[in-house]
């Protein structure tokens, strides 16, 4: 089956029901997307599928065949993504950092769809878990990226 990962067609041979996360990480070697729970609870595995933030740990790979998939590795190729990253660095968001790939992807998806989000928009979109509790910094950086 053929995937479109970060703009590049990639042929993969994983079973059709393999979660997209493990195709990305194991078969394609893109380890920026993280495994946290495997049950769509934490959001560490968030990628964009056709622009939509998607928890790749429960997304069968066959369901995204032919659709554009964007991972954190391509975040710098997107102007909104670059802005989010700069806001993340400026706000010194990460602590352990393990959830932050997913957080950055979620924020990027939000700002691409809603360039000027309200507080409610941010709260509704930024639902990924962070065990280090960087939530206030995440919200501040998301606001900053929206203004930047």
């Amino acid at each position: 089956m053929e995937l479109i990962i970060n703009g590049t067609p990639r042929r993969v041979n994983s079973e059709a029901d393999t979660p997209l996360l493990w195709v990305i990480r194991d078969e394609l070697g893109l380890t920026g997307t993280k495994y946290g729970c495997g049950a769509a609870q934490c959001g560490a595995c968030t990628v964009l599928v056709d622009g939509q933030p998607t928890r790749s740990c429960v997304t069968p790979v066959e369901s995204v065949a032919g659709l554009p998939v964007t991972t954190i590795e391509a975040i710098g190729e997107d102007p909104v993504g670059r802005r989010v990253v700069e806001a993340w660095v400026a706000a010194q968001v990460p602590q352990c950092g393990y959830c932050q790939s997913g957080q950055v992807m979620a924020a990027t998806a939000l700002l691409k769809q809603t360039p000027r989000p309200t507080e409610e928009d941010i709260a509704a979109a930024m639902t990924n878990l962070c065990r280090c509790g960087t939530y206030n910094a995440i919200a501040a950086a998301t606001r900053q990226a929206a203004q930047g």
Binding site: G32, T33, G97, Q100, S101
Partner: peptide, 21 residues
């Protein structure tokens, strides 16, 4: 002083044990 790891952790480049091969 700014954290040394903020950028790599904001871009998916930080490497944890689970990422190694």
């Amino acid at each position: 002083v700014a954290r040394l790891d903020a950028r790599e952790k904001s871009t998916g480049k930080a490497v944890y044990a689970i990422d190694l091969a």
